[in-house]
C-alpha cells in the first residue's frame, strides 16, 4: 500500500514548486483560518502605513475611498481623506485634475507607468490591490519581503538602485527598504516597529484583496451545516430504501 503514500507525496509536491526567492516563514493571520475575520484596529493601522509610506509609490486602484467606512472610518474622515488626493476622471485623460470624492478609486501617485518607471530606476511599483492574491503564500510573502532586507552578501554585486532582499525573486529589488522604525506615529499609540508596521499593512492589503472574506466564511459555515444535515437525511433514506435490495 505504499503506492498510496507515494500518491499522497506526489500530490503534496504539486504545491511546493521551487520558487526563486527564499521561502517565506508562515505567520499567524487572524483571517487565514476557516472561521477567520479581520481585526479592524489592525486594518486601520495598516491603512495608515499604506497612506504615509507605500502611497508615495504604489496605488490600490481596486479600493474606493468609501469602502474604508467598512473598516471603521467615519463618513467625514473618508470625505476629507479623498479630498486630499487629486484624481482624474478615468474615461477622459484630458480632463483637469480635481480633488477626490468618496466614490473614487485610490489612485497611483504616478500619472503613467512610464513616469513611475522613470522615478524608480526603471522598475514599476505595482498596484497593491491584489498583491496578496497575486503571489504564492501571499500575506507571508509580503510580510517576509517587508521585514527581509539584509546587508548584501559579499559575493553579490548590486545593480544601481537595487537593495538586497532574499525573498524577492532574484534577490535584488528596486524598492528601497520602505519601513524604518518610527517612520510613522500610530494614531492609537502602538509602537511603530518594522515588524508591527509590516504586519499591519499586510493585513490591510489582504483585506483590500479579499473584501468579501468575512462574508464568505460566514456564509460558508451556514452552507456546510445545511449540506451536513441534508447528507444525513439522504443517508437515512438511502439506508432504509436499499435495505430492501440487499
Amino acid at each position: 500500500m505504499y503506492w498510496w503514500l507515494a500518491l499522497v507525496f506526489i500530490v503534496l509536491n504539486f504545491s511546493v514548486r521551487a520558487e526563486d526567492g527564499r521561502t517565506p516563514i508562515p505567520q499567524h493571520w487572524s483571517f487565514k483560518t476557516p472561521l477567520g475575520t479581520f481585526d479592524k484596529k489592525e486594518l486601520q493601522r495598516g491603512f495608515q502605513v499604506y497612506k504615509e509610506v507605500c502611497a508615495a509609490c504604489h496605488g490600490i486602484n481596486q479600493l474606493r475611498f468609501r469602502e474604508l467606512e467598512k473598516i471603521g472610518f467615519t463618513k467625514d474622515q473618508v470625505k476629507a481623506l479623498a479630498a486630499s488626493y487629486t484624481v482624474k476622471e478615468e474615461e477622459d485623460a484630458d480632463e483637469e485634475e480635481r480633488p477626490g470624492r468618496p466614490g473614487d478609486r485610490v489612485p497611483s501617485p504616478f500619472s503613467s507607468e512610464k513616469k513611475a518607471r522613470e522615478a524608480n530606476w526603471g522598475a514599476y511599483p505595482v498596484d497593491l490591490s491584489l498583491i496578496t492574491k497575486g503571489r504564492g503564500q501571499g500575506p507571508d510573502y509580503l510580510y517576509a519581503l517587508l521585514t527581509g532586507y539584509e546587508p548584501c552578501p559579499k559575493d553579490v554585486t548590486l545593480f544601481e538602485g537595487r537593495s538586497y532582499n532574499p525573498y524577492f525573486q532574484g534577490g535584488q529589488i528596486s524598492m528601497p527598504p520602505p519601513l524604518i522604525d518610527n517612520i510613522i506615529t500610530y494614531h492609537d499609540g502602538t509602537l511603530a516597529t518594522i515588524p508591527q508596521m509590516a504586519r499591519d499593512v499586510t493585513a490591510f492589503l489582504s483585506w483590500v484583496a479579499e473584501p468579501e472574506l468575512e462574508n464568505r466564511h460566514e456564509m460558508g459555515v451556514k452552507v456546510l451545516l445545511f449540506l451536513l444535515v441534508l447528507t444525513g437525511l439522504f443517508y437515512g433514506v438511502y439506508q432504509a430504501l436499499w435495505k430492501l435490495v440487499r
Binding site: G134, R216, L228, T231, F234, Y235, Y238, W242
Partner: peptide
C-alpha cells in the same frame, strides 16, 4: 435517484468547502 442525491449532497459539501474556504486552492496566483 436517492443514491444519486446522497452522492450529490456529499459532493456539494466538498465543493462548498473549497469555494468558501479555499477558493484559490486550485488556482495559480500569477
Amino acid at each position: 435517484t436517492v443514491k444519486d442525491l446522497l452522492g450529490l449532497s456529499i459532493y456539494l459539501f466538498v465543493f462548498a468547502f473549497v469555494v468558501f474556504f479555499a477558493p484559490n486552492f486550485f488556482g495559480e496566483p500569477e
